[in-house]
Structure formats: C-alpha cells, structure tokens
Design a protein around this nucleic acid. Sequence first.
DNA 1: CTACAAGTTCAAGTCGACTTAAGGTCAAGA
DNA 2: TCTTGACCTTAAGTCGACTTGAACTTGTAG
Lengths: 138, 138
Amino acid sequence: MKLLDISEVARQSGVAASALRHYEEKGLIHSAGRRGLKRLFGPEVLDQLAVIRLGKAAGFSLEEIKGMFGPDGRPSLSRSVLRTKADDLDDQITRLTSLRDMIRHVADCPAPRHIECPKFQKLIRISARRNALKPNKF
Amino acid sequence: MKLLDISEVARQSGVAASALRHYEEKGLIHSAGRRGLKRLFGPEVLDQLAVIRLGKAAGFSLEEIKGMFGPDGRPSLSRSVLRTKADDLDDQITRLTSLRDMIRHVADCPAPRHIECPKFQKLIRISARRNALKPNKF
DNA sequence: CTACAAGTTCAAGTCGACTTAAGGTCAAGA
DNA sequence: TCTTGACCTTAAGTCGACTTGAACTTGTAG
C-alpha cells in the first residue's frame, strides 16, 4: 500500500496543502499515519477529495459534506437525504436556467434599454414575488 | 410618485433593512432622498433588488452585480457581456445537472455501499480528473 | 555529520456579505 | 411640548473556508 505525502496529494488532487490540513482538522479526511512529523495519506483520500469537490460545487458547506461520509471515511448517505439534496439541486438548476434564459433573451432583445423589454420586466417581477414571499425575518 | 421608506422596501422585497443600507453603501441601489434622516426609495428599487437577487442566485458577487447597472440604476450590459454570462451559467448548470444525476443515481443504486457502485466511482474519477488539471498553484 | 527542503503547529489574517451594538436624531401623534 | 418609535451612523463582530506568517522539526542527500 503506497502512501502519499501531502504535496503529492495536493498535486494529484489540485487541493492546496493548507486546505488538506484544514480538511483534516475539520474531520473531512484522515491521514493514514506519519513519517516523522509528516502526514501520509492513503490513496482513498483522492476519491474523498473528489467527493468534497463535488459537494462544494453543489453549494454544500464543509460541515454538510462531512456528514456525507461514514466513520470509515467512505461516502454514506441515507437515500432519503440524497433525494432531498437532489431536489435542492433541481431548484437551483431551475433558478439558474431561468436566469440564463432571461439573460440570453435580454442579449437578443431589440429594446434599446433592457428595462423597457416587457419580457425582462415580467421575469423580474416573478423573481421579486418569490422573495417577497419568503422574507428574512418573522 | 410614491416613495417608500426602508422598512416598506424591506417588507416588499424581503431584503433586510441592514442589507439595503449595505447595498446603498456599495452603490448597488440609491435612495431617492430623505425625510429628515430617513431614506426614501423610489419604487424602481424593487426591480433593482430583484435583479440583485437573481444575480446572487447565479453566483455573482455584489461587485459584479453592481457592474450590471448603468449610472442611472437601470440594468445596462453590453450584449456580448450578457452572452458571456449566459455561457458561464450554462457551464454551471451543466455541472450541477451532472451532480444531481449522480446523486439521484446513487440514491437509487442498489449497491450496499455507494462507493461500490461502478457508476459512482466513474463520476468521482471524472471530477477528480477535472481538478487535477487545474491545480491551485503554479 | 550537517544542511536543507519539505514538512509541522498555532495564531492571526483575509474576504465577502452582512448583522449587531451603541448611541444619536427627528417627524408625528397624544 | 413631550414622548416614542422608526430610522440614522459608525464601528466592530460573525461566519465559512481557507491562507499566511513565524518559529520549529526531521528524513534524507551529499
């Protein structure tokens, strides 16, 4: 079993050594041991880092991502939690998609000022309504 | 022309008053005047806040969003910039979509541990490769 | 054996986007 | 006129995710 030192993990994963130490401190990854002071990582940490990267890309916090691993460091999530996360992502994708459509429309719209384009206004109103419905307080 | 005080804007937009002041300080919105000390906002600020909300949902920073408004406070972006943003969003949507698919697959996958599912492994490897290709340093 | 590159720890700093606290002002109603 | 409540300003604090700096240790090559 070949162990990797921190710079090798950093190189192969593209994650900075300082971030790796940070992840270890937070309990997202674990080193397999030490050679002197130096951490040695098992190769499975690369997969774990890939999961971490994915999770971050999806907007999860490190704390949430940590919860996605079992005590053995292998990904372990209840199916229902996963489905909830997938639904969250769907919402986000929907929002981004309408935003993208709106932006693309505005880019192609012949109105001299975007604000004068009725479709732009409509999209804005829709998103405004969404927010008024879930206010920050009370 | 009816002017709104800050709490009315907060109520209608769902944005906290402190955030509104913050946005004004950063130049994203402007108050139409004052009554005594109190800010008064024109109704157009609600549309601007909707755009700000959308921009945030799309992952833009306040600074970037600020750049989406002309000096008059109306959205103003060159068509080419808009198309670039739309393309960025497409990328992001693509990433989130594959992540969602992966998560949903894992949720439905019969393998006792996710890590044993070949598809899961494949997806992880793909994302690992992406990162190794763009390392943080040098 | 010694020097050195590569690692280590711990504390503090950074960045963005706000929020909170403390103390001040003022328009409007009783 | 007095009080009050809504708002004001400024500074400092918070949170997450790291990064940076300073001072220290150690396996390994020469």
